[in-house]
Design a protein around this nucleic acid. Structure first.
Lengths: 123, 123
DNA sequence: CGCCTTACTATACTTTTTGTTAGTGACTAT
DNA sequence: ATAGTCACTAACAAAAAGTATAGTAAGGCG
């Protein structure tokens, strides 16, 4: 690429060649957009509930993705010192900034691939 | 999920649980958003040039992703019966509908992860 | 006492995805 | 005759993702 300026992720100093690539490094992956979407919809959710809503992601994968999102500052993890344990996940303020991406993903999926479906806002 | 309606991809009859998932099935993957972004920027591009601009995707991956995008109706492949061969890729009208997603990815990357960079619009 | 609960972790394994390298066909330029 | 061009394929290797199952801590409940 002739015009190949550098793009630096200010949060971890990684280098990219274009902003799209940088974004994908943070919210790419099979489950992350789904997790973020879920958190955006329900605001606060517990681990087991989240797992159910992602129709059966394994605990191994879910934990891994959540940890990475936490590290990247998109997700809050709040644990209550109770028994049995209680842990709540939610978006950070920074995490909320990805909303436009999630909405674009949702809109396109609804409009071009099938028919609308409303997400489970239980209770 | 209590409210678990079905979403069907009208192009291949696959079933999903939410529109975001459906979208990811089409434009997810390590290289697809980058390919689509590139095509959106330059409109028409040849194979080798595309490979360079994606700074070193392997031919195997590039071909695979292009084929899938073609199958899903997002990308045109036009080959000229010349020697050496010449093949041009571009977005279909349907492919152009993903622009809002790509822009959202780009905007977020620019705004939250580093500083703007302009893509190589050579010549 | 023994079972239930939640949010995981650990281990082992299989499958899928991604990457590396070399090579091909057919013509053109040297 | 040899090297170069382009757009790929083929064969293989490595990495990531996914599956299955078991286990843990520590208190509540019957």
């Amino acid at each position: 690429m002739e015009n190949d300026e550098k793009l630096i992720n200010i949060r971890n100093n990684k280098e990219y060649h274009c902003p799209v690539e940088a974004t994908l490094d943070v919210i790419g992956g099979k489950w992350k957009p789904l997790i973020l979407w879920q958190l955006k919809e329900v605001e606060v959710i517990r681990y087991n509930k989240l797992q159910q809503n992602l129709h059966g992601v394994s605990p191994r994968m879910l934990t891994k993705q959540l940890r990475e999102l936490e590290e990247d500052g998109l997700v809050n993890r709040k644990m209550y010192p109770e028994i049995p344990p209680k842990v709540e996940y939610s978006l950070t303020e920074f995490g909320k900034t990805v909303a436009p991406i999630l909405e674009a993903l949702c809109d396109w999926g609804s409009e071009y691939l099938g028919r609308q479906c409303t997400l489970g806002q239980e209770k």
